[in-house]
């Protein structure tokens, strides 16, 4: 039986523009399996990022449901939604969105700082920074931990953003054009890194308009006129390994083989 980690049903979203409204999403639906690497493609302004924001509970749909492991995200209370953003989802943005006042290590540790209370942090500080260092090593920036974001290149900042997104070992990584602001070489490196995490069992949903990037995914869906139109197949050697075989780093990973499905 397939295990849907995420199930978005009939998402509608419109924005007010002057006196009128622009309908961005008109009933978009997407089902993502555990361990899957799904790419959402579409032209500029098609609503890809908007859909991703709904999936990560960064924005609220006008209509429709987003279910995470069978639980509706938007029917939950605010604290549970905050917990969902903190523990279940990691977000990577096109423009990195690092906090300029914090150094690299602190930026990675920020989800833990947000999670813990003043007193809880005292107990968790050492472990949190150790794990943040570990993530920093995994993204290959161990020697840059004291540097400020302004002292990093775009690729390095995106690596830090990925490390931050994955620190709490979320079940789902949502990436909004993570290579969109990088040159081809660096973009490829970042993509390879994401692929590596996926191989380790990380479920990833990524938004891009770059066809080459989409080739790396198990499955590509296209967003046109506010709805998901088509599935464009899988990458070669698609998700054949279970998470545990690849050195799973996630929490509560089922390790089931993914099944692609266009809803």
């Amino acid at each position: 039986m397939s295990t849907a980690i995420l199930n978005a049903k009939g998402i509608h979203k419109a924005y007010k523009m002057g006196r009128g409204e622009v309908s961005v999403l008109r009933g978009a639906s997407l089902r993502v399996e555990e361990g899957e690497f799904v790419v959402i493609m579409g032209s500029s302004g098609s609503g890809k990022s908007t859909l991703l924001h709904m999936l990560g509970a960064l924005d609220k749909p006008d209509r429709g449901q987003v279910e995470f492991r069978g639980q509706s995200v938007f029917d939950q209370s605010k604290p549970i939604r905050n917990h969902y953003r903190n523990q279940d989802v990691g977000f990577v943005f096109q423009f990195y969105h690092l906090l300029p006042e914090l150094n690299v290590l602190e930026n990675i540790a920020i989800p833990r700082l947000v999670y813990h209370s003043f007193f809880g942090w005292r107990a968790a500080k050492r472990k949190s920074f150790a794990e943040a260092r570990e993530m920093l090593e995994r993204v290959g920036l161990a020697e840059r931990e004291k540097h400020r974001p302004s002292e990093l290149s775009g690729g390095e900042m995106q690596r830090v953003a990925i490390a931050r997104a994955l620190l709490n070992r979320p079940a789902l990584l949502l990436a909004d054009e993570p290579t969109g602001n990088l040159d081809a070489k660096i973009g490829t490196e970042v993509l390879a890194m994401l692929q590596e995490f996926n191989d380790a069992g990380q479920t990833i949903v990524m938004v891009t308009h770059d066809g080459c990037v989409a080739e790396k995914a198990h499955r590509t869906v296209r967003l046109t006129d506010g709805v998901i139109q088509a599935d464009s197949g899988t990458r070669s050697g698609s998700k054949s390994k279970s998470g545990s075989e690849a050195g799973d780093h996630r929490r509560g990973d089922s390790g089931d083989k993914p099944k692609t499905e266009v809803v």
């Binding site: 605010k78 917990h83 953003r85 920020i110 931050r164």
Partner: peptide, 15 residues
């Protein structure tokens, strides 16, 4: 923008 980042990693409105 910082507020958006913090909220994206789970910070509450009250926080």
């Amino acid at each position: 923008k910082d507020i958006g980042i913090l909220k994206a990693v789970g910070a509450s409105g009250r926080g």
